[in-house]
């Protein structure tokens, strides 16, 4: 089966959800007319990133009667949408979340597990961490979602892999740092990581990232899709808003894993044994 994946790299209006929603819907229309099956947006695509005290003002319960989700779910009749937002739980905790919407349903929500709170980051001051990493089934196979700092922890993609994910959808709002290289420093680090995960896990890895500025922070775009061999299938431009399309031949999973049976030979029982020993603290 072939899946056409569209990656949106967008600028957002900080805290203006209506303006951001309209951009999502316009891009969904464009992606759909280009034949996309899935459209992936960056981290906090509906709200903007450095929210600080805006967090409670933009937080949503992802429900079919929420006007924002209603519009997105309607569009998800055409193509699957993967969008970033702030989720409020029934007890009023706020999470950075990504929702997978398909055919009018909320299929899965991932709450960001690792909240960076160091140097320029201050997420834990405002937000609660998620406490699960689960793969989920879609009409295109079993997928996993990770949000930015999540994929800087090697255990996150590893767990999704063992849970059956064959396509990892990664989203970021990555502020650029480093001005010595060809591209802004953080871009090279993330691209290396995406390629490495694709190769080590023999899965498809798609990543998209914000563009634009929030105060002095610069988000660099540069969406990428790697196949299970670690081959770059598509790449978006740096710094500009754009929609990048990639054609995923899911049969590549079989071809790669026949040649390179890393999944077959992985030993999660051994990992569990050693983790249990390490975590016993004796």
């Amino acid at each position: 089966m072939n899946v056409t994946l569209a990656l949106a790299q967008i600028n957002t209006k900080l805290g203006d959800m209506q303006a951001n929603l309209e951009k999502h819907l316009a891009l969904a229309k464009e992606a759909w007319s280009s034949g996309a099956d899935i459209l992936l947006f960056p981290e906090l695509s509906l709200t903007g990133y450095v929210l600080q005290d805006l967090v409670p003002a933009v937080a949503r319960r992802p429900q079919t009667d929420d006007p924002l989700f209603k519009a997105l779910l309607k569009t998800s009749q055409d193509l699957d949408l993967v969008v970033g937002f702030v989720e409020e739980d029934p007890r009023h905790r706020f999470y950075i979340a990504h929702a997978y919407l398909s055919q009018g349903e909320i299929v899965h929500i991932h709450r960001k597990v690792h909240l960076p709170t160091y140097t320029l980051f201050d997420e834990k001051r405002y937000l609660a961490p998620g406490d699960g990493l689960r793969a989920f089934d879609t009409r295109f196979g079993r997928l996993g979602m990770l949000i930015c700092e999540d994929f800087w922890h090697i255990s996150s993609p590893y767990l999704l892999w063992l849970d059956g994910a064959d396509l990892l959808l990664m989203s970021s709002a990555s502020p650029g740092r480093g001005i010595t290289g060809e591209q802004i420093g953080s871009a090279e680090a993330v691209e290396t990581m995406m390629k490495t995960y694709a190769q080590l896990l023999t899965v498809f890895v798609a990543h998209t990232n914000r563009v634009g500025f929030e105060d002095g922070l610069k988000f660099w775009g540069g969406a990428t899709v790697y196949d299970p061999d670690g081959t770059l299938l598509a790449k978006g431009p740096y710094d500009e808003e754009s929609l990048t399309l990639a054609e995923l031949d899911l049969e590549q999973l079989r071809r790669t894993r026949t040649r390179l049976p890393l999944l077959r030979d992985e030993r999660p029982e051994l990992v569990r044994r050693e983790l249990e020993r390490i975590l016993r603290h004796d």
């Binding site: 209006k13 900080l14 450095v50």
Partner: peptide, 11 residues
């Protein structure tokens, strides 16, 4: 201290 918004709030 605890009224924290970016300068780019709403833009």
């Amino acid at each position: 201290y605890d009224f924290l918004y970016l300068r780019d709030w709403g833009t």
